[in-house]
């Protein structure tokens, strides 16, 4: 187990490193130099060269990368070319927004998805067909479209939830929850449908296992067979599905943040890409990767812990 964890940790580190290189190269392939971007249109050639020289833009790529990496390891991701703010500090403020959004959407997806998937598998018949239909529709509808419809229904028609904006948890936990409600529900629609399908398939597979017959032969009550034994057997692929979904929802938050005007990482990616703010793009890609890889690692370890075969070895 220790060996397994070490291997996975190294793998995660390698992943982040690969992405860091990738982000670095992409940023260097962006049109325009940092000087041109930060000084804006109409800046003189000399002024631009001066800024580029100060930022070390013309140094060999390798030494630029290692300088960036050295700073990044110490928590310094450089400063924005647009407003001169520290990228680390800015992303540090934004991370809680996206984290609440993605975590909330993942948890809600898991609860809804497992509930729907289990009832579809267990009840069969009409319930199964209805859940299947809902899931099919939910997967086909784009999240941004669903989000706008929710805004129309819950913010325009009846002002149950605020249409846009984000209230930090420290300011008011209640308003924080209210401000997250619509974006979280929006993202959870597709996520829940995905997890419901995964759950349904895994439950059906679990119920096809021969040990279910043994349990029935020893008079195990049906609820116990379903919710203790079959669900336990199905839990491995379900947790794997949730891990996968978290990555998707983390990416999906780019759209949710845009739609609901939330100051999260997604908004930062969108703005920095539009403005060619190289250090910001580089920083946000790496931070997003670290978060996603870390959460994946935790969920993967959870999967291994759920499997007696792997736990024992």
């Amino acid at each position: 187990m220790a060996l397994f964890i070490t291997k996975r940790l190294l793998m995660a580190l390698a992943t982040v490193l690969v992405v860091a290189v990738l982000a670095f190269l992409l940023v260097h392939a962006m049109p325009g130099s940092p000087g041109a971007v930060s000084l804006g249109a109409g800046a003189s050639r000399e002024a631009i060269d001066e800024v580029n020289g100060r930022l070390g833009w013309n140094d060999p790529l390798l030494s630029q990368f290692f300088r960036w990496l050295g700073d990044a390891v110490q928590g310094n991701l450089g400063t924005s070319l647009i407003d001169g703010r520290s990228v680390s500090a800015d992303l540090g403020n934004r991370l809680p927004v996206t984290a609440s959004l993605a975590a909330g959407a993942t948890v809600l997806s898991a609860i809804l998805g497992i509930g729907l998937g289990v009832s579809a598998a267990v009840r069969g018949g009409l319930v199964d067909r209805i859940v299947g239909g809902i899931c099919g529709l939910a997967v086909a509808l784009p999240a941004f479209w669903i989000g706008i419809i929710f805004v129309y229904l819950f913010a325009v028609q009846s002002s149950v939830f605020p249409a846009t904006g984000y209230v930090p948890f420290e300011v008011s936990p209640q308003d924080w929850g209210m401000s997250l409600a619509l974006p979280v529900i929006t993202l959870a629609v597709g996520g829940a449908a995905f997890i419901a399908r995964q759950t349904r398939a895994s439950m059906l597979e679990a119920l096809q296992q021969e040990h279910i017959r043994t349990l029935r032969a020893t008079a195990t009550p049906t609820w116990k067979i379903l919710y203790i034994h079959a669900l336990r057997y199905a839990s491995l692929p379900i947790v794997a599905g949730i891990a996968l979904q978290f990555i998707g929802l983390f990416g999906g938050s780019v759209i949710a943040e845009q739609l609901f005007a939330m100051p999260g990482l997604g908004q930062a990616v969108q703005t920095s890409v539009s403005t060619h703010d190289a250090p910001a793009v580089q920083g946000v890609v790496v931070i997003a990767t670290v978060v996603v890889v870390a959460v994946n690692l935790v969920l993967e370890l959870a999967t291994k812990f759920l499997d007696p075969k792997l736990r024992a070895s």
């Binding site: 990738l22 990555i247 990416g251």
Partner: peptide
């Protein structure tokens, strides 16, 4: 598969 695909596509 464990990469934040959307963010990477935006960087591209």
């Amino acid at each position: 598969m464990s990469l934040p695909g959307t963010v990477i596509i935006l960087a591209v």
